[in-house]
Write a protein that binds this DNA or RNA. Structure first.
Length: 498
RNA sequence: GGUCUUGUAGCCGAGUGGCUAGGCAAAGCUCUGCAAAAGCUUCUACACCGGUUCGAAUCCGGUCGAGACCUCCA
């Protein structure tokens, strides 16, 4: 079906992508915890997986894309007294926990829509799958990989490691982990410091707690993803993704839970997207320097010089590889804005019907056609190589140069058959629109505004005919001050853009 | 401390041992009433020191620097 190769974190090498059950592909991505606003780093991760989802579909796969919503809250401190995140934030804001969940879920969806990402095909919540999670724990206890102590249940990592390899994904070994934990106190109930909670007993004041065979409590941090990926994608599925920061312990624990309960590790391929920095500094909730997506869009942040559209930010992401760390800064945003405009202008230009006239194909391909054909083919080759969007974009820029040369008359229409023109248009459109999910900022697509602009353009045209350049320049300059740029095109027409 | 990643031209950022990444910026030219846009041209780098090789940005070793995870985070 395709020659896609992806870098598998589990094996630490690039592998040919062979779905368990083609043409179907199961994709699971660890979603957000909805107890605060999603920040721009979250958006990078989910945009990356959106691109992956889109490209898999574009390649002909039928994808079930599951991305969870974590709404149950986790321990802030696994060794400590078990503060439920959802609950503490709720008290702070005097809201019901589920109100917070609702508020931030809606906000998250809104942001993802602004960034033009597709919703997953299933978006399960942790609280909606407590039965499955409890069943999973019972299963693990039965299989001897979990033990109950005083109303809590822990995963027995040492026991697990006798049969499986805890650390296969993250490259850690349990002896070192135990050694590393030694100086930390409060390992009261656990058999070993590295054991992790599957179910945590809740104290009476916890608002979010549920009935279980071990008493009232709440599920452990890693449990929901195992339960829900198994439920919707099966014991063995194709791709599991998430941010690099989840590799350990979260994904390592997930694999352990999967193996311990089903005998299978879950996903065949593990993908990790890398972190986003701002001005060279790590962006994180704990450092308090995270910029919210809406702040980019409004420009309302002391570190930003102006507003940047979601598409500009997304394009900046796509210009680097998903597995590379990316530093976001003003210069980069400005560059991305210009670069994206160049590509979108080229797409708009080549979509003009005037290029799509029946052109007789010559028997031999012209030099330009050969170059064009090569570039279009390379887009796929590059994407098949672990979703190399940066390289693909480089090809698209080169295709744009062909479009612009055509527009400028440097390349003559005779040099390109209508098939070549179609291929050029299709490639730009497919990758920009379908695979990358980039779109025109809708300000440019207002019909009424265009009518108004035509009035101004006509007045200016008349002034120009009369050689009244003072008036014509006044119109152009004052519009520019308002952020609208007029361009006198080669063919005598005038175009405008915001 | 442990595990891992990384160091590429003014900036960002791809790079499969030998062939121009690309974008932005800068300079020149062309086009234009002037602009803008666009086209062409120029600027050609791989932290440092060794090694392997006919040949290394790419592989290996070391040094120095940066970062991530090990603790809530995508």
């Amino acid at each position: 079906m395709s020659s896609l190769h992806i870098y598998n974190s589990l094996t630490r090498q690039k592998e040919k992508f062979e779905p368990v059950n083609p043409p179907h592909v199961g994709l699971y991505v660890c979603g957000p915890t909805v107890y605060s606003d999603a920040h721009i780093g979250n958006v990078r991760t989910f945009s990356s997986f959106d691109m992956i989802y889109r490209y898999l579909r574009y390649s002909g796969y039928k994808v079930r894309y599951v991305r969870n919503i974590t709404d149950a809250g986790h321990l802030t401190n696994e060794r400590g007294e078990g503060v439920n995140r959802m609950e503490s934030q709720a008290k702070l804001e005097s809201l019901e926990p589920m109100e917070i969940v609702q508020k931030y879920t809606v906000g998250f969806h809104h942001v993802m829509e602004l960034f033009n990402t597709f919703p997953p095909t299933i978006e399960p919540t942790a609280t909606g799958h407590l039965i499955e999670q409890i069943e999973l724990i019972e299963n693990l206890i039965e299989n001897g990989f979990a033990y109950e102590v005083g109303g809590s249940v822990y995963f027995d990592v040492k026991k697990y490691n006798e049969t499986y390899n805890y650390g296969a994904l993250s490259g850690r070994n349990i002896d070192e982990l135990i050694a590393g934990y030694r100086d930390l106190d409060g390992q009261d109930e656990k058999r070993n410091s590295i054991d992790f909670a599957l179910w945590k007993k809740a104290s009476p004041e916890h608002i979010m707690q549920w009935r279980s065979p071990w008493g009232m409590g709440f599920p452990g941090w890693h449990l929901e993803c195992s339960a829900m990926s198994t439920k919707y994608l099966g014991h063995e599925f194709d791709i599991h993704g998430g941010g690099m920061d989840l590799k350990f312990p979260h994904h390592e624990c997930e694999i352990a839970q999967n193996n311990g309960s089903t005998g299978h590790g879950g996903a065949k391929y593990w993908l990790h997207t890398n972190m986003l920095n701002f001005n060279g500094q790590k962006m994180s909730k704990s450092l308090g320097n995270s910029i919210l997506p809406m702040q980019f869009i409004t420009g309302d942040h002391p570190l930003l010089d102006k507003a940047y559209s979601p598409m500009t930010v997304k394009f900046l992401f796509l210009q680097s590889h998903y597995s590379s760390e990316l530093d976001i800064n003003i210069k980069g945003l400005q560059d991305a804005e210009k670069g994206l405009k160049r590509l979108m202008d080229a797409l708009k230009e080549i979509s003009n019907p005037k290029y799509h006239i029946a052109n007789v194909a010559t028997t031999a391909l012209t030099e330009i056609e050969e170059q064009l054909s090569r570039l279009c083919g390379e887009c796929k080759t590059n994407m098949d190589d672990d979703f190399n969007t940066a390289k693909t974009i480089a090809c698209l820029f080169e295709l744009s140069t062909i479009v612009n040369s055509l527009k400028a008359g440097i390349i003559k229409p005779e040099q390109l058959s209508s098939d070549s023109i179609s291929m050029l248009q299709k490639t730009l459109n497919d990758y920009l629109t379908d695979v990358f999910g980039l779109q025109e900022d809708n300000e440019n697509n207002n019909a009424k505004l265009d009518e108004v602009m035509q009035v101004l353009i006509n007045i200016r045209k008349e002034a120009k005919v009369k050689k009244d350049f003072a008036t014509s320049d006044k119109i152009r300059n004052e519009l520019l001050e308002k952020g609208v740029q007029l361009k006198d095109e080669k063919d005598g027409s005038v175009s405008w853009s915001i």
